[in-house]
Design a protein around this nucleic acid. Structure first.
Lengths: 302, 302
DNA sequence: GTCCTTCATCGGTTCAATCGATCAACCTTG
DNA sequence: CAAGGTTGATCGATTGAACCGATGAAGGAC
């Protein structure tokens, strides 16, 4: 019915909305005053609606509709800009700054492989890293202080888009002298008789482990602040724990009196995922990142 | 940096995305095949990016970027369409269908005045009415089954935009023989010794009354299904209640053995508001509706 | 009243959008 | 394999929209 407004005219409209002055708006758009004036009038004609109130002298006064259209033009231009941004992003893939957030149970085990890989493939990439809990990382993501997260799911990501990369199974970590260490794999049921050591509250791994083996009795009093601490508590005989294969493969239990065994049973894993704002302009770059993260997980630092 | 794409080219792009066929996409856009073909190429040039994969014969195959751009072009066009819609809406203000939802403690007292007012001012308006609880109305609003709600705040409207219209004070309703009925106004403190009758759970007025006089003892066993029932329970001596002035002014207590008195004290009111989806194209019409609703509240049906 | 600012309008020019016709590649069919 | 049909790209010509500089007209300042 009503024809759609042109991109150019929308630029004129928002500039005029910001300056309330035809001459200055024209300068901001790098066109002549007459061009912008004509453009606004043409927009009024295409929309068949009054944008400026011309009864009040020479000044620029918006009608209620005009003010509303300025608002909407602004959001429409943002959508158009995102198209241009997406095109830009593919031209120089993963160049410039990328603010990446990771959780403490992934970062130390993934980055030793991932960072060299990225530096090699995308020399132009300036990687800014941040390690924190999932909740705080998501806050930063939505506040536009981070571009991309690597989290472990399931986790309530509150509207963020997630791209699953790999399944990270849980292994049982116990003292080498523990009876269960004699077996090749530990059945889920055997966990119920053990004291399960956990990370502090706030670490998503704590919840994942609890969910994986809800029969075991958690050791409530002492919670570890990191996986390394946790391993040493296991080695000290305070109990057993579940460890992501990613951490285990990085030799976290090397040189420590701890045995690692497979865990039999359904649901004994977490999913490592890329997480970003829905509609992020660089989504294609994140997708391009996917195989590198998968590769870094599949071939962890020895 | 990168110039913004033109509206026309975006239309070509989404049409091509839907048909995957240059000829049919051109027909859908009502242009010649050559025009659409050139337009896509021009878009690739303005964005300086590859949209179609031309290595695979004569067929239309999108590159990953191309598919992504189709998506984004779709949302950008929607934003542009909303601009045209907003302009259309102002040209024929409040014409066509308007699906209005009201809560039971407002509707019966507001509509007798509001509907004739609207019919007179906007003869082209086709008003579809629905009466339900705030929660269900909001569900329908976000599911696009309703355009506009008239609710009582405070209420958790979950992201909806609200436009406060009027303050609706609470009055005390009690049997005419009640001791408090002798006074001109009832102090808030006096309520604490009374049995307070309430509406059923789910009515926001129930929560508003409870919040207004949290000292009074609610009559938990019997809850009324409507304000009319409530008034008859008061008349029957089961207790007292708080009644919005809007309902009181409509003569809800006429012919019943019930006295209405002012209530002294802070916070003894609800706010009647227009509620709609943020970014609704007809927002200017809703604003035009504001004074009519305010007038209908200020001069209720006798 | 005079001058200055500011927005609208005018005439002319350039460039992009569009069309029909044609070409080139691919697919199907006999 | 040859012929015909389909489909997307390209070409040359035309039209109209966007743009500019100059000018006009309406307010406001002094």
């Amino acid at each position: 019915m009503t024809p759609l407004p042109s991109t150019q005219q929308l630029r004129y409209l928002v500039a005029l909305g910001e300056t309330a002055h035809v001459g200055r708006a024209a300068a901001r758009c790098a066109v002549s005053q007459s061009t912008l004036s004509t453009g606004i009038i043409a927009l009024e004609r295409t929309l068949d609606a009054q944008i400026l109130d011309r009864s009040s002298g020479r000044r620029v006064v918006f009608t209620p509709l005009g003010a509303e259209l300025v608002e909407r033009a602004h959001t429409a231009l943002a959508a158009l800009q995102e198209i241009a941004d997406a095109a830009d992003a593919i031209r120089a893939p993963l160049a410039g700054q990328l603010r990446l957030g990771l959780i403490p149970t992934i970062g130390p085990f993934l980055l030793p492989r991932l960072v060299p890989l990225l530096r090699h493939t995308y020399p132009g990439l300036r990687l800014m890293l941040r390690e924190d809990t999932s909740a705080r990382l998501l806050d930063d993501l939505f506040a536009d202080r981070l571009d991309l997260l690597i989290l472990a799911e399931p986790y309530p990501c509150g509207g963020a888009e997630t791209l699953p990369v790999a399944r990270d199974e849980f292994m049982v970590a116990m003292p080498k002298a523990h009876p269960l260490a004699a077996r090749d794999a530990v059945p889920m049921a055997a966990l119920s008789r053990e004291t399960m050591l956990l990370l502090e509250d706030g670490h998503c791994l704590r919840d994942h482990v609890l969910a994986a083996c809800r029969t075991a009795t958690p050791q409530a009093a002492f919670a570890a602040t990191s996986l390394h601490t946790l391993i040493h508590m296991v080695s000290g005989g305070l109990g057993i724990t579940l460890l992501p294969r990613l951490a285990a493969a990085c030799g976290i239990a090397r040189g420590v009196d701890v045995a690692l065994r497979r865990l039999d049973g359904a649901g004994a894993w977490r999913t490592i995922s890329l997480v970003f704002r829905p509609g992020a302009p660089r989504i294609l770059e994140y997708r391009a990142l996917w195989p590198m993260v998968a590769s870094a997980i599949a071939n962890p630092a020895p």
